[in-house]
C-alpha cells in the first residue's frame, strides 16, 4: 500500500525543494523594495500562505458538499484534512501578518481587512474541528463536519465585506506593475511550493482519518467478540 501511494511523497519533496529555491531567491537574489526595504521579503512566504490557505479552505468546502452528497468516508476524510491543513496555513498567515504589522506599522496587531478576516476565518474552521471532535458516531460526524464546513465557508466573503465596511480606512493593495520581475519569481515558486506541501499534508491527514475510521469499524466487532466466542465454545 505504501508503494502504491509514493506519488504524494514525491509531491511533498518537490514542494520542499521549491520552498528552498523560492525562499533563497526571495531572501538573497530579489532586490529590496523601494519603501518597505528588507521587510518586504516576508511577502514571499506570506502571500503564498494566504493564497493556499484560501485554496485549501475552498477545497474543504467542495469536499464537504461531495461528502454530504455521497456519504463516502473518503470525502469526509478529505474535508477534515483540508480544514485542518487550512487551519495550519491560516495560523502561519496570522503570525506572519502580525510580524509584518509590527515591522511596518509598529504594532503587533492592526484591524486591517485581511488580517481581521483571516483571524475570524481561523476561528470559524477551528469551530468545525471542535464540533467534529465531540461527535462519536462516524456517519453523523461526517454529516455534521460537512454541514459546519459549508456554513463556515459561506461566511468568509460576508465577513470580508463586513470588515471592509467596518474599517472605513483600508490600504491600497500592491498592483502588479510596481513589482520587479525578480520579486514575482520567488512569489510564484513559493506559491507552488506551499501548494505541494499542503497537498502532501492533506493526503497524510486524510489517510490517517481513513485508518482511524477503519480501526473503529474493526474494533466494534472485537469488543463484541467474547459473546461470539462463548457461543462457539
Amino acid at each position: 500500500m505504501t508503494r502504491q501511494f509514493k506519488w504524494d511523497s514525491g509531491i511533498g519533496l518537490l514542494g520542499l525543494l521549491l520552498l528552498f529555491v523560492g525562499s533563497y531567491i526571495g531572501l538573497f537574489v530579489a532586490p529590496s523594495e523601494r519603501y518597505m526595504g528588507e521587510v518586504q521579503r516576508i511577502m514571499y512566504v506570506h502571500v503564498p500562505c494566504a493564497w493556499n490557505a484560501m485554496l485549501v479552505y475552498m477545497l474543504a468546502f467542495i469536499f464537504a458538499i461531495i461528502s454530504l452528497w455521497t456519504h463516502r468516508p473518503k470525502w469526509d476524510a478529505a474535508t477534515t484534512a483540508a480544514a485542518e491543513v487550512g487551519i495550519v496555513l491560516n495560523s502561519l498567515l496570522l503570525v506572519q501578518g502580525s510580524i509584518w504589522a509590527r515591522a511596518t506599522w509598529g504594532v503587533w496587531w492592526d484591524w486591517d481587512v485581511r488580517l481581521t478576516t483571516s483571524l475570524i476565518m481561523l476561528l470559524l474552521f477551528a469551530g468545525v474541528l471542535a464540533l467534529r471532535s465531540f461527535v462519536h458516531d462516524a456517519s453523523r460526524r461526517a454529516t455534521w463536519t460537512a454541514i459546519a464546513t459549508i456554513v463556515a465557508f459561506v461566511d468568509v466573503p460576508l465577513v470580508y465585506f463586513c470588515v471592509r465596511w467596518w474599517r472605513s480606512l483600508h490600504q491600497v493593495q500592491s498592483t502588479p506593475d510596481t513589482v520587479a520581475p525578480m520579486m514575482v519569481v520567488p512569489l510564484r515558486i513559493n506559491a507552488f511550493a506551499i501548494l505541494f506541501i499542503a497537498i502532501w499534508m492533506m493526503t497524510q491527514r486524510a489517510r490517517l482519518e481513513l485508518d482511524r475510521r477503519r480501526q473503529d469499524q474493526v474494533s466494534e466487532p472485537e469488543r463484541l467478540a467474547p459473546i461470539g466466542g462463548s457461543n462457539n465454545a
Binding site: S23, L27, R34, Y35, M36, G37, E38, V39, R41, I42, V45, H46, C49, V85, V88, S91, L92, V95, Q96, I99, W100, R102, A103, T104, I197, M201, Q204, R205, L208
Partner: peptide
C-alpha cells in the same frame, strides 16, 4: 524617499523561521 524602512532583517528571519517551524511541527505531528 521618505518613510523607507531600514533594516528589518530580524523580522524577515523571524517570519521565515516561524513558517518553517510551523510546517515542520505539523508534518511531525502527522
Amino acid at each position: 524617499p521618505d518613510g523607507v524602512i531600514i533594516g528589518g532583517w530580524n523580522y524577515v528571519i523571524a517570519a521565515y523561521s516561524i513558517t518553517a517551524a510551523g510546517l515542520l511541527a505539523y508534518a511531525w505531528s502527522l
